[in-house]
């Protein structure tokens, strides 16, 4: 099943809508970011991500 990225929060999913923020998803994305420990990650802090999981770096 093809992976898509939320056009708002960039979370990766196979669904048509993001399960977290309910915005539409897009298959036009690139770059992968995996957040393992959002509470101690500087990157998660920089991007205001507070849920572990997979995100794209860029989505259209």
């Amino acid at each position: 099943m093809s992976q898509k990225s939320c056009t708002s929060c960039k979370r990766i999913t196979t669904k048509e809508r993001c399960s977290v923020c309910n915005n539409p998803t897009s298959s036009n994305w690139s770059g992968l970011l995996i957040i393992i420990d959002p509470e101690s990650s500087d990157i998660a802090g920089e991007l205001n991500i507070n849920l572990p999981g997979e995100y794209s770096l860029r989505v259209r």
């Binding site: 690139s30 995996i34 101690s40 990157i43 998660a44 770096l57």
Partner: peptide
Amino acid sequence: QERNVARLLARKANESGVGITAIIVPE
């Protein structure tokens, strides 16, 4: 193999408590 390595690494990090907090695979 960048994405495959990143995903396996993430799984290992969750299991073993190595201090990895995030992984980036820039295109």
